[in-house]
Design a protein around this nucleic acid. Structure first.
Lengths: 272, 272
DNA sequence: CGTGGCCTTGAAGAATCTCAAATAATGTGG
DNA sequence: CCACATTATTTGAGATTCTTCAAGGCCACG
């Protein structure tokens, strides 16, 4: 659990207090720990993640039904795998706390990271296709998930139109997510990719109530590089370049977005 | 309809008659035309694509239920769009004949191709997420699709466990497909990408009863390049390189795989 | 206080892209 | 059916981007 208490937030020295992070907290070990030890009855309708996770967009009659869903929670220590590629697919996992990476082992032993997942996001849906997980999921910090039996989820989907919509929408969202990543990989250079990555991260953190301007990366340069299709040295160089362009302030894994518009322009160079 | 009668198969001059294409036909305008004008009642259980398409893996009781699904067919002329990104999502489309590309228009006007689809494959599932199509689908040759109302599909899914499984499995398969494409884009060089692309195409053609060794590309070098994240000149050069390595014989869009093992080794350099 | 993991940076090399030109195939309109 | 415009493809040469190899720094941890 101690591996979470990494870089203490000491940006005050360099960060201007100007860009006031409104009603936002920086995602740290403490906020995570706060969610931890309680052993509530696991019910979606009470969950603090209900607007992000499975129940997202559901109204009372259906939401109630969702509580019929019985599932357990599971802690995963930093660095441990939640599941491995090839294992039998039984559960869909919803992240309660912490961050995960999805990855595949390539033939030659290298690893290809295919996604990062944070609170409220679902993992494992790629296992539906063949009944076995197509990728592995590894915790990047101490984490907790809800393990939802896929069979139950299916039962539930049959019981309500709304429920079914929600589930298939979640799967579709995964497809769309990968589409946009493909665009990133297929047609963008190093700066555009990293900018896109950071903006995406920033938005997702914002949606979770954290600061969208200042955050702590849970993944290494190598993992970012694998995800974005570039070498870790290139990731590092690009961070440095952004810093020099006064778009970011970078201190190891601590990132502060100084010029959001600028970063957005890097990501989407309008016309030519 | 005439735009289909493109390159007449005149490979005999260069192709050794040795590598006998067993029970296989080369996908041509004629085979396509053969499927055309009939106006049968549209039923999945009779469909010649039933082992590839929606009904794949379904047994009698469920298969029968599938025939309750009412949907129309639609012809799409070469170059025309079946749907555009942003349009309201109403139908899932199953390709009956012809080939499509999925693509997104980038901010700067360029196009990013995100997939190619052939007979028996479903298109449009990325629209479930937001109720509007996330990409456009364009016919690369005269084509025909079944337009399946998404609402009907959902009704059907609720009626049978098996049916539901099949549908969610299809969506999951899409996720897995994109995973592997991401790996292609993220960690492979030009030769590995093109080899992977050709091997994938080859397999899919084989599954449809066409020759896996000799086929006609429906897409341009630019489209292949966009899909694989490389420039059209690089695609062309890589084709030439493969030809020189005696892996392929290339005549414009006509491809013959001469050394399948060799091509596979290019794709998957074991260890290194 | 030394070790190992992670990150940064430099310099050289390789892969890919850009620009340019030539060729071939296709379609158009007389 | 021909001249002409158009598009797709191939190929070369130089520019650019990214990777590879190498070295050094920082930091947490034992």
């Amino acid at each position: 659990m101690t591996e979470l208490a990494t870089v203490p937030v000491r940006l005050g020295s360099r960060a201007t207090s100007a860009a006031a992070p409104h009603r936002s907290r920086i995602a740290t070990a403490e906020t995570l720990a706060a969610l931890r030890p309680t052993s509530l009855p696991t019910q979606c309708s009470n969950c603090h993640l209900k607007d992000l996770c499975l129940p997202c967009g559901m109204e009372e009659p259906d939401l109630e039904r969702l509580d019929e869903l019985r599932f357990g929670r599971r802690r995963v220590r930093s660095g441990d795998a939640l599941y491995h590629a090839g294992e039998r697919f039984q559960f869909v996992y919803a992240v309660r706390a912490g961050t995960f990476k999805s990855s595949l082992a390539l033939a030659d032993g290298r690893e290809q990271v295919s996604g990062f997942h944070m609170a409220g996001e679902l993992m494992g849906l790629d296992g539906v296709a063949n009944g076995q997980h197509a990728s592995s999921a590894t915790a990047l910090e101490d984490a907790e998930v809800c393990a939802i039996p896929h069979a139950h989820l299916n039962d539930l989907a049959r019981s309500s139109t709304k429920m079914q919509m929600v589930i298939s929408r979640l799967m579709s969202r995964e497809i769309v997510r990968e589409h946009s990543l493909m665009m990133l990989l297929g047609s963008m250079n190093a700066e555009e990719r990293l900018a896109g990555f950071l903006l995406n991260l920033s938005q997702r953190l914002k949606a979770r109530g954290y600061s969208s301007q200042e955050f702590h990366l849970r993944m290494s340069r190598a993992e970012i590089g694998s995800y974005l299709g570039m070498k870790l040295e290139t990731v590092s160089r690009t961070f440095s370049a952004f810093q020099q362009q006064r778009l970011l302030e970078v201190d190891k894994r601590h990132i502060r977005i100084v010029d959001l518009d600028g970063l957005t322009r890097v990501f989407q160079p309008q016309s030519h």
